[in-house]
Computed example of a mutant assay.
Amino acid sequence: MVLTAWLLVTLFALPAHGAGDNDPEFNGAWTPDSAGVGGYVWDAEANDFVQQAPGAPILDPNNYKYELQCHLGGGDFDSVCLRDQVECTNGPDGEDGIPVIWYSMPRGVPGAVWAIHSGPTCLYDAKPEDLLPRIAAQIQKQFESLPINAGAVVAQPSPNTLRGAETNFYADASEQQFDVTMFGQQVHVVATPVQYTWNYGDGTVFGPQPSMGGPLPQDRWGEKTRTSHVYADTGDFQVVLTTSFQGTYSVNNGPPLPIPGQGQFSAPPQPISVWRSITRNYADDCNENPQGEGCPGVASPR
């Protein structure tokens, strides 16, 4: 059996302690003590997730668990809290959920204690351990299908530049956030630009690399920058920027988890016209010879 190296942190419900722990409104059994954390890895041969092998590396530095919002331990609940707890009715699939608080604790830190990570929020599935691997298996495809804005291409000078001169290009890209529904669960995605690839339209490609470039004041146009380019020929070119985004996702306001792969998105092409410059020196005095070459109204030779 071949396992890939990346790891997914998922949740699993602890066994219920008895019939008194069954919640008929939630249509399932849960334990009032909380939910624990387990690891799953993708099994390429089985085309499914399997429990993490003992000793496998863990990417996330924290453990996570959730607890019922107003639970005090054992079978006791805070009656004051219950009056104001989150209403988890009419979830994504029309079913009721349970109000929970998410906790996190650093892994491998002696004396570490559980601390509130987020919440209160609603959990809308009686068996989250069944859904999280399914969401994890589809999150990359979902990420790549999001309407992520790759940013805009800015050129200095523009829309015209000179052959043989440095033309400064930079990207105007930013972090973006999306809320989507997967398997009836609310998933929050954050997409952050991390790498940029420039296709300057003349057969030259630069990247992927981490610099988005930046603007220059006008009196410094023509200077070489990290993302500038020199055109050897005149003509009209289409400059295309491809931005690579790294993402994280959280399910039902749970802890953010990394999306294993990047998504590539291209910005609309930016047209740029490359001109040539001609320099001529003239000795005529236009006051003495108004018809001299280079004087106003006199055509210059091509």
Rank of each mutant, 00 (worst) to 15 (best):
P54S: 14
V109C: 04
D202I: 08
C70D: 10
G213R: 02
E67K: 15
R134P: 00
D202Y: 07
A46Q: 12
A46W: 03
G184F: 11
D172S: 15
R280S: 13
Y64H: 12
I272P: 02
R163T: 04
E95D: 12
T161M: 09
W42C: 07
G119A: 04
L131Y: 05
Q140N: 13
Q262F: 12
V154H: 02
G247W: 05
Q238V: 00
I58N: 04
A173N: 03
G263S: 15
G73E: 00
T204W: 06
G207M: 09
V190I: 15
V251F: 08
P255Y: 03
Q186T: 14
I58E: 13
S250K: 11
G108F: 15
T192L: 12
A19N: 14
Q270R: 12
T227A: 01
V240C: 02
E95W: 00
T197H: 06
E45P: 02
N27C: 12
G263M: 13
P215W: 11
P290I: 10
G39Y: 12
P290C: 10
Q264I: 05
A299H: 01
S145C: 00
E25F: 11
G222N: 01
A19P: 13
V41I: 06
P99H: 07
T243W: 11
N199C: 03
E144W: 00
T225D: 04
Y103F: 12
F12T: 10
N253W: 05
C70F: 07
Y170T: 08
E129K: 08
V37E: 14
E129Q: 13
P255E: 05
Q142M: 10
D76R: 03
D233V: 00
P92V: 06
Q51T: 14
Q264M: 14
W42L: 02
C286H: 10
F265R: 09
A56I: 05
D48V: 05
Q209I: 00
G55M: 04
G119E: 11
V153T: 10
I116W: 03
G201S: 14
A19R: 15
P133R: 07
D125Q: 07
K127M: 11
L8M: 07
G254A: 15
T243C: 06
T4Q: 14
Q142I: 01
Q209M: 04
D172R: 10
F12W: 15
I101H: 00
W102S: 08
F237R: 00
W114F: 12
V86Q: 13
P210N: 01
D78C: 05
L123N: 15
D285F: 02
D76V: 00
T161Y: 10
S300E: 10
E293M: 13
V230S: 07
P193V: 06
D33Q: 11
Q69L: 03
P301D: 08
N253Y: 09
G39V: 01
Q264Y: 09
F26K: 01
T192W: 08
V113C: 07
S158N: 10
N90C: 07
G108L: 14
D202V: 07
F49Q: 07
D43G: 03
P260F: 14
I58T: 12
P32N: 12
C122R: 06
P268M: 11
A152P: 00
P92K: 04
T89S: 15
T248H: 09
P193D: 05
E144L: 00
N63G: 09
N63Y: 14
Q85P: 06
A16P: 11
C81V: 06
A155N: 06
